[in-house]
Simulated assay, not measured.
Amino acid sequence: MERVVGRIGRAHGLRGEVTVEVRTDVPEERFVPGAVFVTDPAAAGPLTLADVHEHSGTLLLRFEQSTDRTSAEGLRGVMLLVSTPASDEDDAWYEDELVGLRVRSPQGEDLGEVARLDTGGAQDLLVVRRADGPNVLVPFVHALVPEVDVPGGFVVVDPPGGLFDPENAIEDQR
């Protein structure tokens, strides 16, 4: 199965480097020179990683197929994918496994569905699309998300009081 491990951001410099929004827990294993990525959209790839380094806390990548700023700018927004087996960890999921799952309260009340997983910051956030309003951000921690049942098609969210109130919803910027 192909899994998203990153999304290409803006061009950096003049030699074809790009920033990357990391979507893997093991960037040091995924982003190594010589790694080949399938892309979405497919027409952008495959891409072979020529160089990787960090600059001011941002991971920078240069692909063999991107040698100047113009070609790097053309890659913005491209998703980087790798073939991986399903995770064998009990508490590890890929974004594509979570998106579309129904979100339930511990009492079984339907709260919406997982729209996406935002990574980075202090912890990952489940973006829950509510049927009756804007999205809600839920920290993806065991205390608030005690159960993830991918085969069953749902996650249980035990929100603190008020988390799903309309004033705590967000306008989706994506």
Results as ranks from 00 to 15, higher is better:
Q173A: 13
N168P: 02
V157N: 03
A43V: 14
L144D: 09
A35W: 02
Q107M: 13
D165G: 08
V136G: 07
E171D: 15
P27E: 00
G9R: 01
V138P: 04
D90F: 03
V52G: 02
Q123E: 11
H53N: 08
P41L: 10
V4A: 13
H12M: 11
L75T: 00
G13Y: 12
A115E: 14
S56A: 11
T70P: 01
E29V: 07
H55V: 11
R15K: 15
L49Y: 05
V114H: 03
G77Y: 12
T39V: 06
A131H: 15
L144K: 10
A50K: 08
E28S: 15
D149A: 11
A72K: 09
S83W: 14
F140T: 03
V78P: 01
L98P: 05
G161M: 10
L80S: 02
T119K: 05
V103S: 00
E167S: 11
R23M: 12
L126I: 06
N135A: 15
S83V: 09
M79W: 12
A122V: 14
F37P: 05
R62P: 04
T19A: 12
P106E: 07
V36I: 14
G34S: 09
L14I: 10
L47Y: 01
G120K: 03
P166C: 07
A44M: 09
D172I: 00
S66P: 01
L117Q: 04
G120Q: 06
T24F: 06
A72H: 03
V99W: 10
L98M: 14
P160H: 08
V20M: 06
E113N: 15
M1G: 10
P27Y: 14
V52W: 13
T67H: 07
Q123C: 15
V18S: 00
F140K: 02
R130H: 05
V157I: 11
R104I: 00
D40R: 15
D51A: 15
L125R: 04
V36M: 03
R116I: 04
L14S: 12
Y94G: 03
S83G: 12
I170S: 00
P166S: 09
P33D: 06
P46T: 05
H55K: 05
R102C: 02
D90G: 12
V22R: 08
D118F: 01
I8L: 15
E171L: 14
P134F: 14
N135V: 09
T48S: 12
F154M: 07
V4W: 01
E167V: 10
R102I: 10
V36S: 09
V148D: 02
M79V: 06
V148E: 04
G9I: 01
G74N: 13
A50Y: 08
